[in-house]
Every structure is written in C-alpha cells, then in structure tokens.
Design a protein around this nucleic acid. Sequence first.
DNA 1: CCACTATTCAAGTAGACACTTTAGCAAGTA
DNA 2: TACTTGCTAAAGTGTCTACTTGAATAGTGG
Lengths: 115, 115
Amino acid sequence: MTTTAGDERLDAMFAALADRTRRDIVARLAGGEATVTELAAPYGMSVQAVSQHLRVLERCGLISRGRHRQTRPCRLEPQALESALSWIQESRRVWAERMDGLEAHLDRLREDPQR
Amino acid sequence: MTTTAGDERLDAMFAALADRTRRDIVARLAGGEATVTELAAPYGMSVQAVSQHLRVLERCGLISRGRHRQTRPCRLEPQALESALSWIQESRRVWAERMDGLEAHLDRLREDPQR
DNA sequence: CCACTATTCAAGTAGACACTTTAGCAAGTA
DNA sequence: TACTTGCTAAAGTGTCTACTTGAATAGTGG
C-alpha cells in the first residue's frame, strides 16, 4: 500500500486535533476571529507556545491568518474539518452496511432454515 | 480551565486516528473481525508493532478483542467514534450558527440601512 | 512430551512533540 | 528618535511515540 496525499492530510488533521489546547483554540475560533495574544490569554503557557500551536493548525488547513495593523488575526476554516468528518463517517458506513447484511442474512435464515 | 474526562478521551481518540496504520486497521475492521496476524500481513512491519497499534486502539475504546483458540480476534466498536464525530460537528455547528447570525445582520442592514 | 503457531512482554533507539527562554523584527505611539 | 506592542525564529529540554529485536507465555496438534 502506497502513501497517498489524503493520508498525510488526515495524519496532520487528526494529530492537530489530538491536543486539547488546539481543540480549544478551534472551538473558540468557531465563535469568531481572534489574535494570537487573545488566544493565548486563557492558558498558562507562553505566547510563543500558542503561536506554535497556531502554526500546526495553519499547516493542516484548519485556520488561516490575515494581517491587520500589527496583529495576525486567526479565523477558522471549517471546511478543513470535512476530511476528518468524512473519514469517520465512511468507516461507520462500511460497518453499518456490513451489519445490515448480517442481519438480512439472519432474517433469511429465520424464514428459510434450509439455507 | 480544568481538564475534563472528555478531554482525555478525545486526546486518546484523535491521537489514535492520527496514525495511518491505525486508521487503516480501523477501516479494515469495519469490514469484519480479524486476528493480529491477519491485520499485520499487509504492512512492512513486525507483528509486535501491529500488536502495539492494537493496544492503542483498544485503550481508547475503538476496538475490543475476544479469544478464539490461540488467536485474539479484534472487532471494531464504532460507537467509540461518536465522541470524535460529535466534537467536530459541534465546532461546525457553532461556526455555522455564527455565520447565520452575521448573514441575518447583513440582511437587516440591507433592508434598513439606518441601523 | 515436543514442536509449532499466535500473541504479548520488555528493553532499546531514533525521531517527533510540547513546551521553555532568548533574541529579533515589524508596526504603532510618544 | 526611542519605546512599546504583537508576533515569530531559533535553540534547548524532557517526554512521548513508532518502531526494533529477543525472550516469554499459552494454546494446538503430532
């Protein structure tokens, strides 16, 4: 099996979401734009650390950043979440489909025990 | 902000999904149960490595394992995916809600430029 | 019993990651 | 001009992670 671009994208996406500070930042950005300093305020860590978290989020496409005066406002790019979402939904779909098949098979057995 | 149990659960879940081998294993298990050896076959890595991946998946509740002869068959527990799914959907919901609010606001501006 | 198969345990290693501190740069303010 | 603010770059540190190899455990079949 070869590595596809989608694999790397999902690697980065899920890895980004695996950190609670980054998830919290994403959740807050869902409510509106914010600057690095604003985002850093609630956490007991340096602004630089938050800046690094933002770089991770930007690298996987979850946020984008503009320029306004001396600030770099961050905004959420929610369509980036779709890749993660659809991976999960696809796995669920395959599983559900198989379960339907099994159930149908059991139903058939119930109605016609010969087979 | 304090650490909640949900945080740790999501940490583990997203971290588990951040590895393509583990995602591939999950996808394959969606199609049906499999043993460690069967799961390890396609990858260019030791069976022990795959066994460790399975331990990660088991720890975050994504798979469970039984016993059958000398094998430990793995099966997917798809309801574990719900926590990740609903976190993503919630972020999307908040964002969409805000966009609706903004749009309604702009509509109001368009109709009544005084405000 | 022995040999074989399936799996896990344990220890080691190279690299990634989440921070830190120090330093530097760009833009606004006095 | 100098000072401050907002942010990033770079380097260091402790911890985690994805593997490896070698050894141990446990069930199966001759």
